[in-house]
Simulated scan of single mutants.
Amino acid sequence: MITTDLTPGSPCWLDLGAPDVRAAAAFYGSVLGWEYASMGGGDGGEGGDMEGGMFQKDGKTVAGLGKLSEEGARSAWMIYYCVTDADATTQAVQGAGGTVRVPPRDLGEWGRMAQYTDPSGGQFAVWQPGKNAGFELADVPGSLSWTELYTSDAAAAKEFYGAVFGWRFSDMEMPGGTGTYTLITPAGLPEDRMQGGLMQVREEDLALAGGQAYWHPVFAVADCDAAVAAVTGDGGGVQMGPADVEGVGRLAVCLDRSDADFVVLTPSSPS
């Protein structure tokens, strides 16, 4: 499970780069019940500053939203992992064969961040908390509940992220014998703190990211089918599902209006 504590190697933030901030704010408001708060104080109405801001659920910050400005980049969610030293993590990334997209930099008194690309093309980021610890809500409907990497080389991914974060991995067979799914647990934490997984897929299955590996977030929802109806009703798409997965719940892999991918999941009730 994902929590709001500051455990190193655990997800602590995520944000979306969107070509149309206003449209993205409306879309996720419809699908996940989020409210958008502009950093400039705008409310999303005419004249509001819609270049960037925060998503909130029940008055708590759950994610960020900004204008997609990188030339040639696709709209996508960026997941940030908590670290105690962004500079040391940068050295670890480079030593393990990754590349630095955004070198470590301070964001005022709020914290220090950096962004990277793993050897298979998967993009991710880190956050060294200052005044701001990260998201304020997790593992409940309308918030992040899991992170997932699709890659064509699971062994290389485990070697890389193990070296960078010290993550522990455990493999399990997927239902129906369709492959192996690798579960991720932060270093030093018990298995009930599993935070995500990685799955090996064919290169042709990575078309969304031009054949490169990519991370996506899984958001908990109270009703998967209702969330999917909101996705399609507001201009998004569905890549897979809704489908029931034994021991996991009912889920669907979705795309927003700009083809940023994410998953909605209604977890199975505890037995």
Rank of each mutant, 00 (worst) to 15 (best):
T151W: 00
E204L: 05
G236E: 02
V231L: 04
D205G: 01
L206C: 06
G233Y: 10
V218K: 03
V164E: 02
A226R: 10
A207T: 13
P186M: 11
G177A: 08
T180H: 05
V201F: 01
G211Y: 09
Q239R: 14
F169Y: 14
F165N: 01
M174T: 08
D171I: 09
P186L: 07
M174G: 06
G197H: 05
E159N: 02
F219D: 01
E204M: 11
G176V: 13
A222E: 15
D192H: 15
D225L: 07
F160A: 01
G237H: 13
D205W: 05
E191G: 11
R168L: 08
L183S: 14
P175V: 08
Y214V: 04
F160I: 07
A229N: 11
R168S: 13
L189H: 11
E203D: 15
G237K: 10
F219H: 07
A157P: 05
A227W: 11
Y161K: 03
E191W: 13
V231R: 03
G177T: 12
A207E: 14
E173P: 06
T232L: 09
R202E: 14
A229S: 11
D192Q: 10
M174Y: 13
D223T: 02
G196R: 03
E191A: 14
M199H: 01
T151D: 00
V164K: 02
Q195N: 04
D223R: 04
S152Q: 02
A156Q: 10
S152A: 13
D234W: 06
T151F: 00
W167C: 04
T151H: 00
V218G: 03
E159I: 00
D205C: 01
H216E: 05
G179M: 05
V228E: 04
A213T: 12
G188E: 07
A154I: 00
G188T: 10
F219A: 03
P175T: 11
V221M: 07
A187F: 07
A213W: 03
G196L: 02
M174K: 15
V238M: 05
F219V: 08
V164W: 03
